[in-house]
Design a binder for these strands. Structure first.
Lengths: 205, 205, 205, 205
DNA sequence: TGATAACCGAGACGGTACGTCTTGTCTTGTT
DNA sequence: AACAAGACAAGACGTACCGTCTCGGTTATCA
C-alpha cells in the first residue's frame, strides 16, 4: 500500500515522484492522523481534518495515500517499527503463551488500543486493498511470531509433530479475538489461562 | 434495538406512539433495505435511497430507527424469524459439528452472506448500541444452539464433565471466524475437519 | 376569506359544517396566533406552532382557514372589531389630517405594528386571495374613512369640487406608505406636515 | 450585498477568496436564477433548484450569497447594468413625467415585472440586510433620476424654489406605488395624468 | 547555474448524503 | 361529525466531506 511504487525512473507517467516528496509534509500528516485517531477515533476523523491539522493541502494526502485507512495504516507501521517481536521462549510453552496472551488481553482492555483496533477491523471489511495491506504488514508478522514459538515447541516435543502450526495459532488467538470483537464476555487473565490449557491439550503429542 | 420498548406504561414517555405506526411503511422500508443490501451493500446504501425506494419520507425512517444499521438489523431479525435453529444431534458430536460448521463455511463463501456479515461486523465496531443489539438478537441465540449441543454431548460423556461450554463454543467458532474475518487463509471443509478434530481433542474427558 | 361559505345547509358536501364548529378551538387558535405574532413574528410562526400552542390538532386549523395568513387576518379582524373609526372633523381639514397622519406615523414607528404590517404586506404579494381579503376588510374601510373626511371638506369648499377623492386619498397616504415600506427616509411628524401641506395645495379649489 | 467587499485589505478576513471565484459558476447561477424567477417566481424557486439548474454544488451558492434573495438581487444588478437612466428633459416637466410614469405603469402591468417586483417587495419586508441592498442599489438610483429632473425643473422655475425634492419624488411615485402594491384600483395612463397634474399643482411656485 | 517541472499550501469546485424542519393530508380514537 | 393527537409523503433546508481541479510559490533535479 502507500508507496509500493518502485524508484520508477521510466517516464511512463506512473504517479508522483517519490524522490521529490516532502518529508515535512509526510511527517506532519502522520502526526496529525495519529493525534486525531486518539482524539476522535477513526470514524469521525476526516481527510479535511487531517489536512487542516497538518497544515497541508488535501491533494498532498491524496497524492501519496489512496484513503484515510491507508494513512492510518502508515501511522501504525511507523509506530510498530517494522518487525514483530518474537515471543519469549523459556522452554515452557504454556507459561510463555500465558504471558503473551495476558499482555494481549491487557492491550485489548486499553480504550485507546481497543478503539483503534476496532476501527481497523471495520475498515478492513469494506476495503479489500486495505485488508490485504493490514494482513500482510501487521497481522501476518504477528502470527508468524506465534508460529515460530510453536515450531520451537514442536521441535522440543511439547506438541504433536504433525500439528498444523497455522491452525494451532488460530486455535489460540481465534477464540480470544472472537470474544473481544463481539464483546460476548469480558476478557480476563483467567480466560487466557483456560484457553491456553485447552489449546495445549488439543496440540499435545 | 429499534422498538424493543414495551407497551410503555409511563405516559410521560417521549417519542412516537408505536400503536399508530404504519405497517405499510414499516414493511416497505424493510423490503427496500433488504433489496439495497443485496444490490449495493451496506456501506453504499443510504437513508435517502431506502426512503426513495420504499416510497416513504425520510422522517418516517428516522422516527422509528436511529440509524441505517438499526434498519438493517431489523431486516435480519425479520428474516431470522426469531429463534435460532438447534444443532442436529445424531449422537456423534464430531459428525454433527462437521455438518454444521461446513454449512457455515459454505455460507461465508457465498458473496451475498459474506458481504452482509462483513457490513455487520464493521458496523458493530463503531456503534455500541448496535453491537449490543446484534449480540443479543443474532449472535447469542446462535451460540446458545452450539452450547446446547455441547451440553448434550457432555451429558453423553463425549466431552469432559468440567468443560466450560462457553469457552468450548468459542474454541470451535473463534478460529473459523478469525480466518474468515481477516482472510488469512481460505475457508474449506478440510479446515473444518481439522478444527473439529483439534477442539474435541481438547475437550474430551 | 376564512369562512366565506354561506350557512350551507345543502348536503352538497361543500366543506365542513360551521354550525358544529368548536368555539373553544377557534378562540384558542386566534389567541395562540396573536401571541406568536408578537413573540416571533409572522415569518417564523408556523402552523405546527399555532396548533401546539393552542392545544389543537393541525387539521382543525386547516379545516377552517386556508393559510397561516388567513388565520392572522382573522386575528386582526377580531381586534379591529369591524369598522374603521371615522376621521375627526373639526372643520379644519389640514389640522385633522395632520392629527391622523401623525398618529399613523407613530404606529408605523412602533416595532410591533411595524413588524405585523410588513408581514401582511409581504404576504399580500404572493397570495392573491389573501390580498383581496386584506384589501376589502382592512384597507378599504381605512381609506373610506379618509374619503369621507375629504368629501366633507369638498362640501365645505376647502378642496376643489371636481377633485377625485380616491386619488386624493392616495396622494396623502401613498407617499407616507412608500417611505415607510421602502425605508427610504425616517417617518416624522414634520414629514407629515410637509405632506399635508403639499397635498392640500394640490387639492384646493 | 453579496460581494460589495473591497479588495479586502485586512488579511484576517474570514470567508472565501473572491480572487479564486469561478466566473463560470457565478454566471451559471445567475442565469439559472433568472430563468427560474421567470418560470416559477421567487417564492417557489429553491436553492436546490438553482444549483441543479446551474450544474453547481449548493455549497458554491452558499459560499458567495447568504440567501436566495441575495442571488436574485444580483440577477437584477446584472440586468440593470448599474446606473439608472436619467429622465428625459424636453423642458416640459409635465410631459416628461407623464412619459416616464406611463412607461412605469406599463411595466407594472407586465405579469413578469409585476411578479418579480412583488417578490422583491415581499422579501424586503423580512430581511433588513436585503432591504438595505435593494434600497441602495435599485431604488435610490431610480429615485435620484427623478430628483435630477425635478431639480432641473426647479432651476427652470417650473416648480417652487423651496420645494423639498425628495418629498416631491414621493408625491409622484408614492400614490402610484401604493395603488399597484395594494391593488386598490387599476393602473392606467389616465391615472398617471391625473396624478402628474395634481402633483405639479402642489409643487408650482 | 539557471530553467523547468513537480511538489507544495490553500481552498474552490461539482457532488452526495446527512439529519432536521415544515407543509398539508390522512388515520385513529374520543367526545 | 368535529375534535386532539400525531403519523405520514414530500421535499427544501443549510452543513459536512468527498475526491478533483486550479492557483501561485517554493524547491530540487538536470541540461
Amino acid at each position: 500500500m502507500a508507496e509500493s511504487t518502485a524508484p520508477d525512473r521510466t517516464p511512463t507517467r506512473r504517479g508522483p515522484d517519490p524522490r521529490r516528496r516532502s518529508e515535512r509534509a509526510r511527517t506532519a500528516i502522520l502526526d496529525a492522523a495519529a493525534a486525531l485517531m486518539g482524539e476522535v477515533g477513526f470514524a469521525r476523523m476526516t481527510m479535511e481534518g487531517i489536512a487542516a491539522r497538518a497544515g497541508v493541502g488535501k491533494q498532498t494526502i491524496y497524492r501519496w495515500w489512496p484513503s484515510k485507512a491507508a494513512v492510518v495504516l502508515d501511522v501504525f507501521q511507523r509506530e510498530a517499527g517494522g518487525d514483530s517481536e518474537p515471543l519469549p521462549d523459556t522452554g515452557d510453552l504454556a507459561a510463555d503463551l500465558r504471558t503473551v496472551l495476558r499482555a494481549t488481553v491487557d492491550e485489548y482492555n486499553t480504550p485507546e488500543t481497543d478503539r483503534i483496533s476496532r476501527a481497523f477491523t471495520a475498515e478492513v471489511q469494506h476495503d479489500e486493498d486495505f485488508a490485504r495491506a493490514v494482513t500482510e504488514d501487521l497481522l501476518r508478522p504477528h502470527m508468524r511470531a506465534y508460529k515460530e514459538r510453536l515450531r520451537s515447541a514442536r521441535e522440543a516435543g511439547e506438541i504433536s509433530p504433525d500439528a498444523d502450526l497455522d491452525v494451532a495459532v488460530e486455535l489460540l488467538t481465534g477464540p480470544l479475538h472472537h470474544r473481544w470483537l463481539l464483546r460476548t464476555a469480558p476478557l480476563t487473565h483467567d480466560y487466557v489461562d483456560v484457553l491456553v490449557d485447552l489449546a495445549l491439550r488439543a496440540l499435545r503429542p
